[in-house]
Write a protein that binds this DNA or RNA. Sequence first.
DNA 1: AATGAATGAGGATTCATTCAT
DNA 2: AATGAATGAATCCTCATTCAT
Lengths: 218, 218, 218, 218
Amino acid sequence: MAQQKRTEARKEQILQAAEKVFAAKGFHQATVSEVAKEAGLSDATIYEYFSTKEELLFSIPLETTRRGAEIMEFHLGYIRGAANKIRSIIYHYLWFYKNHPDYASVALMILKPNRGFLQTEAYDIYRKASGVILDVVRDGVQSGEFRPDVDGHLVRHTIMGAIEHIVVRELLHESGRDILENVDPLTDMVIGGIKAENDLAGWNIRVSLEPPAGDKNK
Amino acid sequence: MAQQKRTEARKEQILQAAEKVFAAKGFHQATVSEVAKEAGLSDATIYEYFSTKEELLFSIPLETTRRGAEIMEFHLGYIRGAANKIRSIIYHYLWFYKNHPDYASVALMILKPNRGFLQTEAYDIYRKASGVILDVVRDGVQSGEFRPDVDGHLVRHTIMGAIEHIVVRELLHESGRDILENVDPLTDMVIGGIKAENDLAGWNIRVSLEPPAGDKNK
Amino acid sequence: MAQQKRTEARKEQILQAAEKVFAAKGFHQATVSEVAKEAGLSDATIYEYFSTKEELLFSIPLETTRRGAEIMEFHLGYIRGAANKIRSIIYHYLWFYKNHPDYASVALMILKPNRGFLQTEAYDIYRKASGVILDVVRDGVQSGEFRPDVDGHLVRHTIMGAIEHIVVRELLHESGRDILENVDPLTDMVIGGIKAENDLAGWNIRVSLEPPAGDKNK
Amino acid sequence: MAQQKRTEARKEQILQAAEKVFAAKGFHQATVSEVAKEAGLSDATIYEYFSTKEELLFSIPLETTRRGAEIMEFHLGYIRGAANKIRSIIYHYLWFYKNHPDYASVALMILKPNRGFLQTEAYDIYRKASGVILDVVRDGVQSGEFRPDVDGHLVRHTIMGAIEHIVVRELLHESGRDILENVDPLTDMVIGGIKAENDLAGWNIRVSLEPPAGDKNK
DNA sequence: AATGAATGAGGATTCATTCAT
DNA sequence: AATGAATGAATCCTCATTCAT
């Protein structure tokens, strides 16, 4: 029991070190020795807890991803309306990546392009988490908040793609801009692209237009 | 002159091989020997044309990216209207990645997460090409087609992010779906998110509504 | 005293495990961990009883060899005649190796080709045991049973060499044959090779031969 | 063609070095670096010619064994009579091992106890070479030179066992004795153990004995 | 222009062994 | 007496790269 805890703590310690080192140098450029040094342990000790450098890599996102997913779900429970939930999701990811830059580096720049990652439990969690978007879109469509022909998968691609693009760009360029500034514009754009035009579908509409009095560009 | 041509041809031959091999195995997993074998040359010959493995990698996208950018620009010249241009850009990228899967693999899964790539000429071309989106958005805003507060950079992030997300997913999962099916939905979503609510700003609008003949649930 | 016994028992337990593991995998291929697991103990405990892996190895044959030598000597006491004793020795070794295959593996395939083994107490016992052959040959020569020019060391080489060759072959090939079948043929061959042709040495011999009545080829 | 030769020469060079180093330190104690140094090459070059340390080991005896077998067969062609051939075989092995002590070390102390060696081409050659004993015994039995019940396999075990025992002992103890001194005694013992008691079966024999004049031992 | 041959540099991994508890 | 945890030391092997021909 105490053993259990100790082992977990040590694993966590190693994972932290690995996350940091991998984020800074990339997976292949980083050496197990560097991770060990960062963790204040010997090389061999790393192998007591992870049988392989790759296993170490794949273990990094597990806990963090799980925790992130929990947080998001927790917050979503408080929020009404599909559009609001979309905003919350966007906010969550940008906020989370912003506050876990090493995790972001590892996840987006090392793991995502790694085929082996697909067979990973962490990938499952990631999928499930971003799958929330599918649910929200479905609900939004059902409630009439969104257009009936909206494709949830495409929405997911768009949101996650935009977020990840933004985050990766920031990681690489370190512009110093606050990526959270993108939350509202991105939300607006996405919602604008999928919301039902009005509630009047099916009504006949007659519109009469009259020219404005003078110049009235805004 | 003939020398020149010969050299270029050989370089091209090597780059094709490298693109194929790197796409299949990843950069670090692939060896120079494998590239040489694929090209039907000896290892040493590779180094006659490229001074390091990394230079070889960074040289892969150059020509292809340039060509792709040219094609896109060429087509855009024929197209009127910011929204239409957006669609054309989306179409172009998806079509291009679809038809150059090895290039897509290398570009999206190897080069993009590689810090060194940023200092590359190919990256410049890529930036310039996707920069067209900025111009189109600016024009669209000016013409009133898009909302005045639209952020071109965000639009670029969103479009490129969505496209790359879609392409990467297909590369990794090989679902067999035609990624071009996403062109219109994505276009609609993006345009929906940024277009001016109407072109009638400043006009007075009077609307009369009548219930439809039959069913009128929303 | 009880302590003493307990310690001895534990040592024996470890040695049994080591013999089994080393026999199965070879000395270098086997790890201390495997021995520990086989013994149901932890790695560290092994080192409470044996200070190095090699000491563990060299300790394996001690008891068994001693016991084997005792048994042989015991039986030899009951046997009359050098030739009979030779047979008894051959029988003993083949029987002993047959019934202790792990010991045979360790002794013949690991220890014998190991230079360090020569400095070992177990090696002393082994030498002394097989040294009995020297005594028997000497006695046989003295009694006239064997030719006066017989070299005891060569007889020992031959007997032990033949036995070990037979045993190793069986260990490696696992033919399933009963190696004890070799006892009599081997004895006959060896005895045939060293026994005095007759007791008439020194007499002049005149021999007159007459062809047999009928067939006389060969 | 010249390439071929060069490659072969280099392989031979490496094998010589490996034989020497392995003989001196044993297989596991020896490192590839040591072999490389002994060969005057770099570690990596070793791997250009042998893909694995073990392959290197198993390649050592190939040529030498083949050559040894050829020599033996060549000489046997000149020799008449099964007994004489037996002597020739014994002489050959002892002579060969005496003059190739490193080969002897590797063959008898490293390869023989190595299970993997059994799957080796060199082992095949070894088996075939020592298989000559079977043929000779068969011929000797047919010609009446040997007893009809002689078991060729046992003879082989005995001869090879004795030889290897003698050689190993000399390798380990370096007594400085000439192992070739064992040729005749060993031959006599073996032949004495298997030869037909006389060629006179069927003849009538009359023997008259007279006491010797002085000392006339044979 | 092309390459066979050689290698330096490095890196993941293993395992016997130690020691505080 | 027993062991969980930690590690130092070592070694095989890979591969990008060089260079004489």
